[in-house]
């Protein structure tokens, strides 16, 4: 809750929305305690009874959002809230509709990947850039700031699952001519739980590329 501490000092009006798909680790109990500390206008719990997929999770969280801009981030600490000010600053400087965090520029980076994971990532990236020309360097990252109306529109038009969903959102946004800016972020791979990347994820990724090639 680092952000909860610093944002008021910078005069930023915000709320934290936690979408929880009935995780068994006591997330909801902690959220209720945090609401006691910070107030339930600051911390909002958007719970769902069971795991229902990423796209609908975004849509569900978005229903609770009251601001003009929404930042989506993973809550397992692979996305550090210390980068939030740079997202906001970049948006205010450029008036962009989307500010996307990128791990693949100087100032950004990844920790916790072995050589094979890096090779897969680079290969996937080169392939996507060669055939899709997306105009952003990090397609599958999910730490992004969106103008709320743009996010609503994108969520309703994207159909992919998992991290292909992240790629579909940014590719569609780029095709629709939205102003997209990038800021460097670092990514410390999941402290809690293991990051999954197997043969089936690679197949899903390739199917996603072909789908986007024809659909956008």
């Amino acid at each position: 809750m680092w952000g909860v501490g610093i944002a008021p000092k910078r005069n930023i009006d915000f709320e934290v929305i936690v979408v929880d798909d009935g995780s068994p680790d006591g997330t909801q109990e902690i959220i209720k305690q945090l609401q006691q500390v910070y107030g339930d206008g600051r911390i909002i719990l958007a719970a769902r009874p069971k795991k229902l997929g990423l796209g609908t999770a975004y849509a569900h969280g978005l229903k609770h959002a009251s601001g003009n801009f929404v930042v989506i981030m993973d809550a397992d600490l692979s996305h550090h809230p210390k980068y939030l000010p740079s997202f906001i600053k970049k948006q205010m400087e450029t008036g962009a509709s989307i500010v996307t965090g990128t791990r693949y520029v100087s100032g950004g980076g990844v920790h916790g990947w072995n050589l094979l994971r890096k090779l897969t990532s680079r290969g996937a990236n080169v392939l996507a850039h060669t055939i899709l020309w997306p105009g952003v360097s990090d397609l599958t990252g999910s730490f992004r700031l969106y103008r709320k109306s743009v996010l609503e529109n994108l969520i309703s038009s994207c159909v992919s699952k998992g991290y292909v969903f992240q790629m579909e959102m940014i590719v569609r946004a780029s095709r629709q001519g939205h102003h997209i800016e990038e800021v460097p972020i670092t990514f410390v791979d999941r402290l809690y739980g293991s990051s999954k990347l197997g043969g089936s994820e690679i197949v899903e990724y390739l199917k996603g590329l072909v789908y986007l090639l024809f659909a956008t």
């Binding site: 693949y104 520029v105 950004g108 980076g109 990844v110 890096k118 680079r122 080169v126 670092t186 410390v188």
Partner: peptide, 20 residues
Amino acid sequence: LMVGIGLMRFPTCPQEAVLL
């Protein structure tokens, strides 16, 4: 070539894990 260059220049951040 692009994959090779990307791998050689892959940005890592071991210090971030410590800070985290």
